Amino acid sequence: MFDTMTLTKTVGALCGSLLILLFGSWAAEAIYHGGGGHGDDHEQAYVIDTGEEEAEATEEEAGPDFAELFVNADTGKGERVFNKCKACHSLEEGDNRVGPYLHGVVGRTVDAVDGFAYSGKLEEATEEWTPESLNEFLTKPSAFAPGTIMSFAGLKSIEDRANLIAFLDQTDGDTYQMDVAASDATEEPAAEEEEAAEPATEEAPAEEATEEPMADEPAEEAEAPAATEEAAADEPAEEPAAEEAAAEEPAAEEEAASGFAAMVAAADAADGAKVYRQCKACHVADAEQNRVGPHLVGVVGREVAVVEGFSYSDALTGLGGEWTLDRLNEYLAKPRDFAPGNKMTFSGLRKEEQRASVIAYLQSLAE
């Protein structure tokens, strides 16, 4: 057994070793931090550059551009993202819930919905719900407008925000035109459309001139016997008549290409593809697949309400006839007025140029 002196020496040695370790640890920390103490406000004496901050900054700069994502957004995916908003918001105009209705929210003035009690914090942050301001708001509402009664935490994915905003943008039928660099490219086809439209306007007087003989066909028939008698007497006279008939055919073609049909012919299908984003959630244009609405493959010239497997409303089945260009133009302008009682919830495309371009796009898919 150990005696008292041996035990005392052993304990003393252990305590001494512990003190040496503690002192060494204190000295090393003091040297590393430059003697600035142990508080949270001290500055690090030696900074090792690992490149992490530059890498993070590079990742942020190389991230997707919201304007580009918005222009090419998928409204079908945006509708699925909207499921997170359904508990508090409605797409029906005037239907306020926990939050204000979102029909036509893109481009709307902030705090503009009648009958909803706003906190007053939103108007301090922005004046209008542009796609950019909505993107910033939906990222983190509490950070965008501190004090807002919006309790939603936000959407982390910029793709989800772009798709959702594009979906909300089509609720009132009037799409928001963003000022992006890509818009310069889209303006050129519009200029080309105007140039292509000029010859049509110059040919209009010739078309008007051809309408008068068309309206007076019986008179031509009455003179036909005399014409044939003269032709029998003088056979060479038939050649000018044939030349006149050949000249009338282009005039008839020009007449058929007038009006809205001429707009469709001059429209850019690429512009129509962008307008078609508003239809994606309910319709398929490149495959015979029905969704909320019937597929649109070959819709131009197709008989009304004939797609197999789709249940049409009585309002459309009773129309009959075909989907001509003029008929589609009238229908897309305001579906509810064209066929009252139909199941189409889309409010319509206000601009005739948009209607012409989207029909041109549908025609291009069928070619």
Rank of each mutant, 00 (worst) to 15 (best):
T4L: 14
L7Y: 13
A13S: 08
S17L: 15
L19R: 06
L19M: 11
A27V: 13
Y32G: 15
H33V: 05
G39M: 14
G39Y: 12
G39F: 11
D41T: 11
Y46S: 12
Y46G: 15
E53Y: 12
A57K: 13
T58N: 07
E60L: 12
D65E: 11
V71C: 01
V71S: 03
T75Y: 03
K77I: 07
K84R: 10
K86V: 14
L91G: 01
E92V: 13
G94R: 04
P100I: 09
V105G: 08
V106T: 03
T109G: 15
V110Q: 04
A117Q: 14
A117F: 13
T126G: 07
T126D: 11
T126K: 15
E127N: 11
E128V: 14
E132A: 01
L138Y: 00
F144Y: 04
S151K: 08
G154H: 09
S157R: 04
D160M: 06
D160R: 02
L168Y: 00
D174F: 00
A181W: 01
T186I: 05
E187I: 05
P189C: 07
E193H: 09
A196T: 10
T201N: 02
E212V: 14
E212S: 13
E217T: 14
E221N: 10
A222L: 13
P225V: 10
E229M: 09
E230N: 10
P236L: 09
E249N: 05
A257I: 02
A257V: 07
G259C: 01
F260P: 03
A265D: 13
A267E: 05
A269Y: 10
A270L: 05
D271T: 06
A273K: 12
D286E: 13
G293D: 04
P294A: 06
L296H: 00
L296Q: 08
G298L: 00
E303W: 08
V306D: 11
G318C: 04
L319T: 07
G320P: 02
G321M: 00
P335D: 04
N342E: 14
G348E: 04
R350S: 08
K351Q: 06
K351R: 11
Q354W: 10
R355E: 02
S357R: 05
A360Y: 02
L362T: 03
E367C: 01
